[in-house]
Amino acid sequence: MTAFETVYFWPDLKKSFSEVYRVLKPGGMFMFSYGLESSATMRYWADRIDEMRILPIDEMTKILSDVGFENLQTATKGDYTINIRIQKPKGTV
Score class of each variant (00 low, 15 high):
residue 21 Y to P: 04
residue 7 V to I: 12
residue 18 S to Q: 08
residue 11 P to L: 10
residue 22 R to Q: 10
residue 91 G to T: 12
residue 85 R to Q: 08
residue 87 Q to V: 09
residue 40 A to K: 15
residue 34 Y to A: 00
residue 76 T to I: 09
residue 70 E to M: 13
residue 79 D to G: 14
residue 11 P to F: 10
residue 57 I to A: 08
residue 56 P to L: 05
residue 20 V to Y: 06
residue 15 K to F: 08
residue 13 L to R: 11
residue 91 G to S: 11
residue 51 E to F: 05
residue 20 V to S: 04
residue 38 S to V: 05
residue 91 G to P: 03
residue 81 T to M: 11
residue 69 F to Q: 13
residue 13 L to D: 03
residue 14 K to Q: 08
residue 29 M to Y: 14
residue 91 G to M: 08
residue 62 K to S: 02
residue 65 S to G: 11
residue 41 T to L: 14
residue 63 I to W: 09
residue 44 Y to Q: 08
residue 46 A to K: 13
residue 51 E to R: 12
residue 69 F to D: 11
residue 39 S to W: 08
residue 19 E to R: 04
residue 70 E to N: 14
residue 52 M to H: 02
residue 35 G to Q: 08
residue 8 Y to H: 09
residue 8 Y to P: 06
residue 53 R to L: 07
residue 43 R to H: 02
residue 75 A to M: 03
residue 68 G to S: 10
residue 36 L to N: 01
residue 51 E to H: 12
residue 69 F to R: 10
residue 36 L to M: 08
residue 49 I to T: 00
residue 73 Q to D: 13
residue 73 Q to G: 14
residue 15 K to Y: 01
residue 45 W to C: 01
residue 88 K to D: 00
residue 12 D to L: 04
residue 38 S to A: 04
residue 24 L to W: 11
residue 14 K to L: 06
residue 29 M to D: 13
residue 87 Q to T: 00
residue 11 P to M: 09
residue 48 R to W: 06
residue 26 P to W: 13
residue 41 T to N: 02
residue 68 G to E: 14
residue 36 L to R: 02
residue 90 K to V: 13
residue 26 P to N: 11
residue 91 G to K: 12
residue 34 Y to V: 01
residue 36 L to A: 01
residue 3 A to W: 09
residue 75 A to T: 10
residue 79 D to C: 01
residue 61 T to Q: 07
residue 73 Q to I: 12
residue 70 E to D: 14
residue 54 I to T: 04
residue 23 V to E: 09
residue 22 R to H: 14
residue 68 G to P: 05
residue 72 L to P: 02
residue 2 T to F: 05
residue 88 K to I: 04
residue 37 E to S: 03
residue 68 G to T: 11
residue 72 L to N: 08
residue 64 L to K: 06
residue 52 M to E: 02
residue 2 T to A: 00
residue 40 A to P: 01
residue 57 I to W: 02
residue 70 E to V: 15
residue 84 I to F: 02
residue 13 L to M: 06
residue 71 N to L: 06
residue 81 T to S: 03
residue 87 Q to Y: 06
residue 46 A to L: 04
residue 40 A to Q: 10
residue 77 K to Y: 14
residue 42 M to I: 12
residue 78 G to F: 08
residue 4 F to Y: 01
residue 87 Q to K: 09
